[in-house]
């Protein structure tokens, strides 16, 4: 069914464009809450892209962890630090012109590199399908050490976060 395939292909390009627009929103909008919402939208769009790349498991994890957890944390922080009907503060510093100039150079250089590199696209890899079972086996087999290290890092971060964010106890009265 070529019509459906072509439609899907251009839909993917459209999704990419939408992600870029939302990403621009993340870095340019003045209201931080809107930025966080744009971030959520961009991340959901990325999850769609993962589905296109046949990484459904990663797409679900992306939504669960990024949208469900990270964005929620960010919004919590925004709510705790911004004033509800706050005055509009300047959100950008005065370095945007040099930043844009440098980034244009960076992007054009890397684009040229990407287009010149002969990527070793292997047809076998394109056919291969990653199943959740395979991911699990890899996590428990080859990658069991990084997996354990990550869990230790997570525990450390959890405890550290609690310690940092906890209100200082007032000195105990004698």
């Amino acid at each position: 069914m070529p019509i459906l395939e072509i439609a899907a292909k251009y839909t993917t390009y459209a999704v990419m464009a939408v992600i870029l627009v939302f990403a621009l929103g993340v870095v340019t909008l003045r209201n931080l809450f809107h930025c966080a919402l744009c971030l959520a939208a961009a991340l959901i769009g990325t999850a769609v892209l993962y589905v296109v790349l046949q990484a459904e498991y990663l797409a679900a994890i992306q939504i669960l962890l990024y949208v469900g957890a990270v964005v929620t944390l960010v919004i919590f922080a925004i709510m705790l630090t911004e004033h509800l009907a706050g005055k509009t503060v300047r959100q950008n510093n005065s370095q945007s012109l040099p930043a844009i100039a440098g980034l244009l150079g960076f992007v054009s250089l890397l684009t040229a590199l990407i287009l010149k590199t002969p990527w070793p696209v292997t047809p076998t890899a394109l056919q291969a399908k990653v199943l959740v079972m395979g991911l699990g086996k890899a996590l428990m087999g080859d990658y069991v050490f990084p997996f354990e290290v990550i869990s230790i890092v997570l525990i450390a971060a959890l405890i550290g976060t609690v310690v940092i964010a906890k209100k200082d106890q007032p000195e105990e009265k004698a």
Binding site: L37, A60, I63, L64, V67, G68, V71, T72
Partner: peptide, 8 residues
Amino acid sequence: AVSSITIL
């Protein structure tokens, strides 16, 4: 995953 979006 989808039910976790409901918070947003």
